[in-house]
Design a protein around this nucleic acid. Structure first.
Lengths: 189, 189, 189, 189
DNA sequence: AATGAATGAGAGTTCATTCAT
DNA sequence: CATGAATGAACTCTCATTCAT
């Protein structure tokens, strides 16, 4: 099955960014990599900036899909473990794009755009938390939405600290274990 | 007392960013705002990029100074409260520069540069945690460095979610309370 | 009665120019406005430039038709009055296209193209002058073709000064009266 | 004496327009001709469009200077003769720029910009007319400002018809004579 | 230490036009 | 006749940086 021009362009853009870094990321590089004309880019993206949320969405979609693929968790421990594991793996895989997306979105878009992209993930987690709460496996001391927010934020921060910062020296297993312990302590009844 | 040209330039840069946004941030704007010649900039900064860590450091120094000004905390609750309060206030005050710094550093520098800037903050918090641990006020279940890292990350994430994202609708007091409760649950004995 | 694609395109182009100005005048705008495909334009116009004389001709045809609709003038005064009145009205109505036509024709075509478009108008006026001359109502001191040329030019210049320039403050009635007086003085026996 | 960069650029732009026509007129051609860098252009002109009124002003300044160089006219005939002669000569000399200026100004500027450029010329002519009127050599039937406006317009139109249109076949002497006769008839007592 | 004119590569974007369907 | 994706040259303009004064 033939790849669409849109996919060609998105993939090319991601390759360029991975290989040459954010600085060299330019429309002219993208189209050269994709093997299409300069003008073709603008048939698919209104501007260069529109590439940024497109990449971000692709990563988050992938992340959520992997979490959902594991099925609904029976316990808080399992849920937290899944989230941590998938987030760390995704962060490792897509480390080269994550800075790019942060920079790009904060530069060119309001944070509402972030929320829009994160929305499915937040909604899914909220429903998971809600279910566990009804099963008596999560504290009712915490407000649900805030807990969701803080959980996602904490896991992401840890994964980024691990994979984007070279200064963190502990191994992944330790980092994940510490993080899990902290989260379970925070959320358990 | 006369302001040094260096300070003039740094302040001018911050004014431009605050007033005109990240996109308009350029050396030519900075020097116009500072009222000096184009070439003068390069007597003080090796390149435009050097401005980014300079601004980041200025913000983090200010943040740490305010935390330290409150004196050593006797309890975990007090420490967490102080950190949350100061971080939220700083994030509010300097919200316009935070994206700029993230973007700039991730674009032009390795994350080691981040660590270097954060180092005094981490060190201070580690000593605070250590002291509280010895006083039996923090769990010994968690590895100290990881706990420090995760704590800073969680607070920062929450503050940024609150001030940089317009989608979060809860008020500051609620956000802070939820965050504190979660952190204390995670860290307390 | 269904409008032909040609007319749709011409009308669309005129709408775009009127609404969005000369700068936005491009084939892609025209076809979007007309609701046809990009390629369709080239079934009706050899190139974008061909639109310019098409619009110019449409305006001049309309102008001449209105003058002729008033019937043959018996006196110089009546003729001059008719010409002035119609020219001022047309200039007002089509002011948005006049710059476009001037620019476009001078850019892409020789002035012979102008003459070609103006030819029917000149010919008609020459016959009118000739008739009045024979009736002893126009001086024979002036060479006919030159007088025709100068008359058309003077009236057009005045109308454009009135409607395209905001600096002219006199009202239309005054401007027309002064112009008529001047022309009659120049042409009368 | 060394030519300033500004003059180099203006002259280069005029050469390019004369040699290659309006279509090829682009900033990159101008700077190549002037032998300076692309960016240098923007040290002297805020945008490409700013070149247009600059050229227009240069031409009109030259025209007025030549008219004034002939000294104050004693009779209407002399004044009209001078104006016609100078305008025809200037139009011939600068014929290649005149379309460019018309197009450019009408495209990018309000007509107020035209008035601004023409102002010194109008003012001078008004004072000349006024003087001749007091000397009993010009009719008082016509309103002064309108007469000035119409006179300038008529002469310009005739000169442009002569030099920009290839269809006009009469020689310059005849064209000038006809024009003069018409104007004197219109303005004389 | 300060100046600011000059640099020139390269950015994002637009556009008229083509052509296979 | 109509389509619209693809083209790619050309455009204006910005920018960080240099260097003679």
């Amino acid at each position: 099955m033939k790849q669409t021009t849109y996919d060609q362009l998105l993939e090319a853009a991601m390759n360029v960014i991975r290989r040459e870094g954010f600085d060299k990321a330019s429309v002219s590089r993208f189209v050269k990599e994709a093997g299409v004309a300069q003008g073709t880019f603008y048939n698919y993206f209104a501007s260069k900036n529109e590439l940024v949320p497109a990449i971000a969405a692709r990563i988050l979609d992938e992340q959520l899909a992997r979490m959902q693929a594991r099925g609904d968790a029976e316990t808080l421990e399992t849920l937290v473990e899944t989230m941590i594991d998938v987030t760390f793996t995704i962060t490792e895989e897509f480390r080269d794009y994550i800075s790019f997306c942060y920079s790009g979105i904060s530069m060119y878009y309001s944070f509402e755009r972030w929320d829009e992209i994160y929305r499915p993930y937040y909604d899914w987690l909220e429903s998971q938390f809600s279910k566990l709460q009804r099963a008596g496996r999560i504290t009712t001391e915490l407000e649900l939405k805030a807990a969701v927010n803080n959980t996602v934020g904490l896991i992401e921060h840890a994964a980024e600290a691990h994979y984007l910062s070279r200064a963190v020296t502990e191994d992944r297993t330790t980092a994940e274990a510490e993080l899990k312990r902290m989260l379970v302590r925070a959320l358990t009844i």
